[in-house]
Amino acid sequence: MNDKRGEKLKKFRLFLVLFFSLSSIACKQKTLYFTPEATGYIYDSVTKRPLSNKIGYLGFNGSTPSSASIIKLEANGHFTIPAVTSSYYFIRPNVRQYMDAPAEIFISYDNYEKKILDYAPFIWKQVPERQSGFSYYKKINLGIIYLDPEKP
């Protein structure tokens, strides 16, 4: 009787090991990338010099949360807009709102006119078609963006 009990215990332990091993594999976190990461430089259109160390608003129109859109430019005018992402384990989030979002970046710095930049041409040129879905991390370089000073 002890042998049967020991055998059942071994089978139960094996079952638990297999169950938790397979569960941990199935519980791998997945990430959706709704926008690419975007980098570039912001320059003054009159002086042709970079906007150095300025703090302003820069993000994906309709996708970047307002708290994440505050971006400080580096001394050479360089910026990075992080990709808008969502992570999940089992239930994939609704992506409809991101499918309809415009491919636009908003740019707003004090003493300069606000600007909306269409980044779709950069996606077409820099991201391979096989990586166009939400499952792939993408990075685009916007180059130099010129802002016009506000008129008094």
Rank of each mutant, 00 (worst) to 15 (best):
M1S: 15
M1G: 15
N2C: 05
G6R: 07
E7L: 12
L9Q: 11
K10M: 04
K10E: 07
K11Q: 04
K11M: 03
K11L: 06
F15D: 07
F15H: 13
L16A: 09
L16N: 09
V17I: 15
L18T: 08
F20S: 08
S23N: 10
S23L: 14
S23C: 11
A26V: 01
A26F: 14
A26T: 02
C27V: 02
K30V: 00
T31N: 01
L32M: 05
L32W: 07
Y33T: 04
T35D: 10
P36K: 09
P36L: 08
P36F: 06
E37G: 02
E37P: 03
A38T: 01
A38R: 02
T39L: 12
T39I: 15
I42S: 06
K48I: 01
K48Q: 05
P50C: 12
L51F: 07
S52Y: 03
S52F: 03
N53Q: 11
K54I: 04
I55V: 14
I55L: 15
I55R: 12
G62A: 12
P65K: 08
S66D: 02
S69L: 02
I71P: 15
I71S: 14
K72M: 14
A75H: 11
H78K: 11
T80Q: 07
T80I: 12
T80N: 08
T80W: 04
I81Y: 09
P82W: 08
A83S: 15
A83M: 03
V84E: 11
T85I: 14
S86D: 11
S86C: 05
S86R: 10
S87M: 06
S87N: 13
F90P: 03
F90M: 05
P93W: 12
N94C: 10
V95L: 06
V95W: 04
Y98T: 07
Y98G: 05
M99D: 13
D100V: 12
A103Y: 14
A103F: 14
I105G: 04
F106R: 03
I107D: 00
I107S: 01
S108Q: 15
S108C: 10
Y109F: 15
N111H: 14
I116W: 02
I116S: 07
L117T: 00
D118V: 11
A120I: 07
F122L: 15
I123V: 14
W124H: 05
Q126E: 00
Q126P: 00
E129M: 04
E129G: 02
R130H: 08
Q131W: 03
Q131L: 12
G133E: 01
F134N: 09
Y136H: 11
Y137V: 06
Y137A: 13
K139D: 13
N141E: 14
N141A: 14
I144E: 00
I145P: 12
I145N: 12
P152Y: 09
